[in-house]
């Protein structure tokens, strides 16, 4: 009984730490890409490392709440429109991660899961923007957006693959 409660509290604390890490990585990323002439929506998405780790080790509700915290932070820093886009992108990408991670005998590593969820993130944002203007948006740089989603998604996934053994050694859930 006591053990169950402790487990829940640990999960909550780790989820909160991951949310904080996600925000820190988002901020770090904006300082990194500031001034670069990137098309809208093209960014590394380092905070997905934290979201994917949450999804893989804590489960769907925790990953969704990390995505929600990110959207909440965007509400404070960039306003309601950006926040809604962040929420829809985050939601779709977490769902993509969750279903890909559920696959039995999965051959994808975190790199593949991350790449596909990054694309889901971009498409979720485009869908939200389309819903806001009440018309299907087609962006001329959509191919670039897909390309950057896959590229950066692979990169962040490889980073998670690389740090996973170190994270496992922390024995967060014991």
């Amino acid at each position: 009984m006591m053990n169950e409660k402790r487990k829940k509290l640990t999960k909550l604390a780790v989820a909160a730490m991951l949310a904080a890490a996600a925000l820190a990585m988002s901020f770090f990323e904006t300082t990194l890409t500031a001034g670069l002439p990137l098309p809208p929506g093209v960014k590394p998405g380092f905070s997905n490392i934290a979201v994917l780790f949450a999804c893989a080790s804590l489960g769907l509700p925790s990953a969704l709440s990390v995505a929600a915290v990110k959207a909440g932070f965007t509400l404070l820093t960039a306003g309601p429109t950006a926040s809604l886009l962040s929420l829809c992108g985050g939601l779709l990408s977490v769902l993509a991660m969750y279903f890909l991670l559920q696959i039995k005998h999965r051959r994808l590593s975190y790199a593949g899961v991350s790449a596909l969820s990054a694309v889901a993130h971009n498409l979720g944002q485009l869908a939200a923007a389309s819903a806001l203007v009440g018309s299907a948006l087609y962006l001329s740089w959509l191919p670039v957006l897909l390309l950057s989603g896959v590229g950066f998604g692979l990169l962040t996934g490889v980073i998670l693959n690389a740090v996973m053994p170190a994270l496992a050694k922390l024995k967060l859930f014991r």
């Binding site: 590593s109 790449a115 989603g149 692979l154």
Partner: peptide, 16 residues
């Protein structure tokens, strides 16, 4: 293989 598996690249290639 610990960092990147063939399946990852196949998934990426499909999107590309």
């Amino acid at each position: 293989k610990r960092f990147l598996r063939p399946a990852d690249l196949i998934a990426a290639a499909a999107v590309l």
